[in-house]
Simulated scan of single mutants.
Amino acid sequence: MKVTVIGAGLGGLCLAQGLRGAGVEVEVYERDRDVHGRFQGYRIGLGDLGLDALRACLPERLHGLLDATTGSLSGSRENYGPGLEFAGSRPPMTATAVDRQVLRQLLLTGVDVRFGKRLSAHQVLDDGRVRAVFADGSATEADLLVGADGINSAVRAQLSPDVRPEDTGVRCVIGRTPLTDRFAALVPGFGAGVSDGEVMLMIGLMRFRRPPREAGAELGVTLPDVGDYARWVLMPAPEQEELSPRDTVLAAIEGWHPDVRALVEAADPEHTSWLSIRVVRPGARWPLGPVTLLGDAIHATSPSGGNGANTALYDARRLRDLLAEPGVNLLDAVDTYETAMFSYGAQAVEHSVAALDQFLPGRRAA
């Protein structure tokens, strides 16, 4: 069996790692020009669902490196007013902090990725195999094509053209700031929110157990040279297109506590950006065949749900497990995967959309 994966994000690479470990031939095609083609994101929180999937798919020699380059998230989620006056707590949570860029580099280890390959179309052949054609004129054939190419999936556009990203209408600004004791004190537990009743600045910490570059070097794995940081998000972001993302946040939190403003002022400008929150709802199933979808390509969630990466990684594990079964019938495996994925994927999207309100003070008050 040969599997072609379109997209070298977390879900696609997790699947590739799992298939490699199971002895299944797999190749990955990515439209970015190289591994550093674009910034890969910020801190995310993984629960048991995502962590178990990673451990199941990663080779054992990388398990210790995964542990070393993650961090712990636990405790209550404190709410404060703009002067950092205490305004209550939300229930405690526990998760594992993961930096997207570090995790992606880890997942790339040993995987055959062809960069600079933008998918143009796919064709199911008479023998039941599938052919992927790329913008540069090259092509490849496989027994299964997996679209793991994100919210703007080219595979989905052909496979299920009626399913399109939906704009929630919410914009935010996201950024990260090198961590200091001053900024760490803003987040005594799992996370913190500072709000004036109109906007909310959410703050979370990424503390690595070990510096990723140092930990990776011991195994000959090249990881980003990134230190501990505070990740923050302003929701909803005011419509001030004439301002930079950072200046938009500073204008929105004018008069707030000096520590909060200093957090934003010290942010890395290259890693401070606008984000329009969009989702993808799975919709109706396409006819069963040798093409399927994974992760954001079919069930993109709002980040407010905290379940996007977890669900994509779970997709990868489920599909790997089914394809690796002895004597597997490919279409039966795809059918079993899609039947479950459409159900839990849709639930993940709806959960994430419902969770948006708790981070939108103006909407909640209305």
Rank of each mutant, 00 (worst) to 15 (best):
L356T: 00
H257E: 03
R213L: 08
D99W: 14
M202H: 05
E30Y: 03
R43A: 10
E242Y: 03
A215R: 04
A346M: 02
T4M: 10
E27K: 13
L360P: 15
M202Q: 10
A56I: 09
S89K: 14
R281V: 12
V113G: 04
S160Y: 02
V249P: 11
D268K: 07
E338T: 05
R320V: 06
R210T: 08
V28R: 02
D99I: 04
A68G: 05
L275T: 12
R118H: 05
D196P: 05
E242W: 00
H271S: 06
G137K: 05
G75K: 11
D99H: 11
G169Y: 12
T4G: 01
Q105N: 12
G305L: 00
Q358A: 10
V28Q: 03
T272S: 07
C14K: 10
R38T: 13
A366L: 10
D162R: 02
R278I: 03
Q101A: 11
S74L: 02
A53T: 08
V349L: 07
A300I: 02
I298G: 00
Y80S: 06
A142S: 15
P326I: 14
E60G: 14
L243N: 09
H122A: 13
L66E: 07
T177K: 01
L219D: 15
E141T: 14
D181P: 02
G345I: 03
R285W: 10
R364T: 06
L330F: 14
